[in-house]
Design a protein around this nucleic acid. Structure first.
Lengths: 211, 211
DNA sequence: GAATGTATCCCTGAAAAACAGGATATTTCC
DNA sequence: GGAAATATCCTGTTTTTCAGGGATACATTC
């Protein structure tokens, strides 16, 4: 692991399916002496392949990749190569994404409208083992901290089925429980979402990316 | 207007709130002799300001801007400066976005995972007054052509209110019509969306960005 | 001018879900 | 061990939704 003060440059690798973003980051970082461009991949598979023979210090990783989500990839990478620090990279300043990325072992989260300075700061913070968030990202994290809706496993299951259009009766049959139980879950979901009815519940659940 | 074969370079301006993308495009295009970097803006307002004193040939425009949507900005620009060609730029390969952008007067639509070649082709095609779409974008346009859901004004209104959580009764009161009528709209919506009930209707409507 | 299509409007009765107000196992965590 | 959270189930009433219909109004097309 590289520690602050070391003369060795920080090796940075990028996984993003947008050439423009890869090119943009390369352009932003190319004149930094402390940073070395390790390479890039446009999907999860070629990223994994690259890592078999190379070990960058930091991976900048898009949340959305063509073959699998950045969240999954992040989890897998951290299991295989726990010493690599991962910084989530995304257009979306959404609480659920950031949360999932951090839960998967990422060390930071930077929005794609970040400036060069912000990106550098992120890299230099994360390499020390600390966490880093874009200003905007940390704002949304704080803001949504309180009104965060936590669903139980069963509730998520039921919510998903309701969204698919199943009736209470059908959900009950699928889960081998009584319709009354499904009704209770439904009730609790409505309460948690502070929704007047299923229509508005589905709407907010979709907005919060819970379906 | 610049015609093909002219020696004058094509002036390209970019509006995008992501520095990385701006930087990426600049980097991609900087060695092209046929293209001149006119400048960039990170929001609609500064784009408008720039155009008061400059007239680029082409504007690459993100769909999502901090102050107003690219779709609105596109419409306004085409009214004020009809000779400027606008190419929509977005991460999303979604039919509704592409459609709206084209309806607002854009000449093309390029996804952000486009290659340098694709971007150049887009610019060179559009400058001739033709339309250009990313391969993927044109695919989705074709694919969704048939199963495109067209709602009437009334249906959109009712759909919106249902999604807000209003009951048939409340919608009826707001629109000064009978609940039975609201119910018919509801029925027609269910039929158009091929949904089993309101839950699945709201879900698909959200996915299709119709709410 | 007749036919067609589409958007809007309305009705009834059965089915489903919401709502109120309970209760009881089973984990899970301190 | 005991509190808290989770998941399960019940009864009965009220409200909403859903699945059949049908009617009118108005523009478009042949």
């Amino acid at each position: 692991m590289i520690v602050p003060g070391t003369i060795m440059p920080i090796n940075v690798f990028i996984v993003d399916d947008h050439y423009m973003v890869i090119e943009g980051i390369r352009s932003l970082l190319q004149h930094e002496r402390t940073i070395e461009w390790s390479g890039h991949a446009t999907n999860a598979a070629s990223c994994m392949a690259f890592l078999q023979h190379n070990q960058p210090d930091i991976i900048l990783m898009d949340i959305n990749l063509p073959d699998k989500s950045g969240i999954e990839l992040c989890k897998e990478l951290k299991e295989k190569y726990p010493s690599i620090f991962i910084i989530g990279l995304s257009t979306f300043n959404q609480q659920s994404f950031i949360q999932k990325m951090m839960d998967s072992g990422a060390s930071g989260y930077v929005l794609k409208n970040a400036t060069k300075e912000e990106l550098l700061e992120a890299i230099k913070t994360v390499i020390k083992g600390k966490l880093f968030f874009s200003d905007e990202a940390s704002h949304t994290l704080q803001k949504n901290e309180e009104k965060k809706i936590v669903l139980t496993r069963r509730e998520k299951e039921v919510l998903g089925m309701i969204a698919e259009g199943l009736t209470n009766h059908e959900v009950a049959a699928k889960l081998f429980i009584s319709t009354a139980t499904v009704d209770t879950h439904r009730k609790n979901l409505l309460a948690k979402f502070d929704a007047r009815n299923i229509a508005s519940l589905i709407k907010t659940a979709m907005q919060l990316q819970l379906i």
